[in-house]
């Protein structure tokens, strides 16, 4: 799984950090999404899918590899 984020779309709601804290963080200055792991291990995939599903700004895109 490849994870793509769009910092322009992000509205800083923080769902991704709650769903997959190993993969997503928020920038200190403005709370915008930061990608910690673009190719997370299998055990984190469910959390990443949850994060993408609940993101209100459609700022997370998942690519199968």
């Amino acid at each position: 799984m490849l994870v793509h984020i769009d910092q322009e779309k992000c509205c800083g709601a923080g769902h991704c950090v709650l769903a997959a804290p190993e993969v997503f963080d928020q920038r200190d200055e403005d709370g915008i999404v930061v990608l910690l792991d673009a190719e997370p291990p299998a055990e984190l995939h469910q959390g990443v899918q949850d994060a993408a599903a609940v993101c209100p700004a459609a700022a997370i895109r998942l690519e199968r590899v």
Binding site: C11, G12, G14, D25, Q26, D28, G31
Partner: peptide, 11 residues
């Protein structure tokens, strides 16, 4: 909004 998002981020 982005002037405030940092204030309410998870950490």
């Amino acid at each position: 909004r982005r002037m405030l998002t940092g204030e309410f981020m998870i950490k």
